[in-house]
Amino acid sequence: MSEHRRIAVVVNGTPYEAEVETRKYLAEFLREDLSLVGTHIGCEHGVCGTCTVLMNGVSVRSCLVLAVQANGAEVMTVEGLATDGQMHPLQEAFREKQGLQCGYCTPGMLVRAYELLEENPEPTAEWVREGLANNLCRCTGYQYIVEAVLAAAERLRGSSVAEGQPFEPATSSRTNQEA
């Protein structure tokens, strides 16, 4: 019952070749074969968006795409966002705005938000909400995620080269206090 095929994919800029079961999903391939466990699985039904990755620049639900379908493709996962020890502005903004709580939906959200900002660098809050509507988050109620995406957009517009800050394991810098 288990048929195998050889595939070649580029993930986060690194080329991989692997022998995979034809029925294996891309999400499992990323997590199990490549140990890229940042891509999470929420429903395995294509509904929640937790497993979102980019394939050739377009978001897909990696729980529905077979690994063999990714043959020859370029895939980007959450692990591809930070470069040289610097968080992507989206990651920084999610941190500043507390656009996450349990963090489980976060990789899918970040990847989808990345795609949204590639498409439209000057989004409105409504546009962002609509764009994120197929990625479920059970923790945040979305408000701070939307704020984070808008803040990241602004930062990305400010610098044509995405400039990140080095991430520290723990910092005590303060965000705007609301009370």
Partner: peptide
């Protein structure tokens, strides 16, 4: 009383949450 940034977040944002299935 201060809204300091969360200590938990960097690892979660980097896809290194350390969840059980990982």
């Amino acid at each position: 009383g201060k809204s300091i940034q969360r200590i938990e977040d960097p690892r979660l944002l980097l896809g290194r949450g350390g969840y059980i299935d990982d």
